[in-house]
């Protein structure tokens, strides 16, 4: 039964995107001081607890927003945040500074933990009610991305994608739906969904890199 509330919440929380100012510019959660975070992570890998607390104070709200976006429920999102920071503390030495920004690395930890949780919930067979809830979620995905265009570069690049590409990429990214789950949801052939995601990602990447 957990799954039902999960999906119900998932729809409702998609609405809080509307509260985000659409033309304030780059005020999103990725604008943290990268160099500062890098140093804090390095300190954490040496076992510096104070650095860890500073790191927590500066990025926990961002990771919370990601967890909330994935889980759709505050209690579940808080658990994911907790788990994320335990993992960040123990794995700080594995962060490869030359590969990605610290926040990207941390967001990925949070997102992966959230998706693991969501997949566990989904292992239960989907009831009709859940199926409907999942199906109902899909129209919302477009709206999420509409409000997600606060970042000019991103919104420009997302506009390059067609509706299905945007939808599938967002749902896969935040909710960990597999291609076959997406195919069921969208009532589209599996191959179509897969190639839609791949083409969409490739287009997104080329645009962001240009």
């Amino acid at each position: 039964m957990n799954g039902i509330t999960l999906y119900a919440q998932l729809i409702s929380t998609d609405n809080w995107h509307g509260a985000i100012p659409s033309h304030v510019g780059r005020t999103g959660i990725l604008t943290a001081n990268t160099e500062n975070l890098r140093q804090l992570l390095a300190q954490c890998s040496l076992g510096n607890r104070r650095a860890f607390e500073t790191l927590y104070r500066s990025v926990a709200p961002s990771l919370h927003s990601v967890a909330l976006r994935c889980m759709g429920r505050r209690d579940l999102a808080e658990e994911v945040v907790q788990e994320s920071f335990v993992r960040i503390w123990h794995n700080a030495s594995r962060y490869e500074a030359h590969l990605s920004a610290p926040l990207t690395w941390m967001i990925n930890i949070t997102r992966n933990l959230a998706i693991d949780q969501l997949r566990k919930h989904r292992e239960l067979p989907l009831s009709d009610l859940q199926q409907n809830a999942v199906a109902d979620d899909t129209p919302g995905a477009d709206e999420q991305l509409d409000s997600a265009r606060s970042s000019r570069a991103l919104s420009h690049c997302l506009e390059q994608l067609d509706g299905m590409q945007r939808q599938t990429i967002t749902i896969a990214y935040f909710h960990g739906f597999s291609a076959s789950e997406l195919a069921t949801q969208l009532a589209a052939p599996l191959g179509t969904v897969k190639s839609s995601i791949r083409r969409g990602m490739e287009r997104l990447r080329r645009c962001l890199e240009s």
Partner: peptide, 19 residues
């Protein structure tokens, strides 16, 4: 890491949530 970085930009529009 390249992919992760680009995909993480999907989280860009989220607003920070107090914990």
């Amino acid at each position: 890491a390249q992919w992760d970085t680009h995909l993480a930009s999907l989280a860009e529009p989220l607003s920070a949530q107090p914990v």
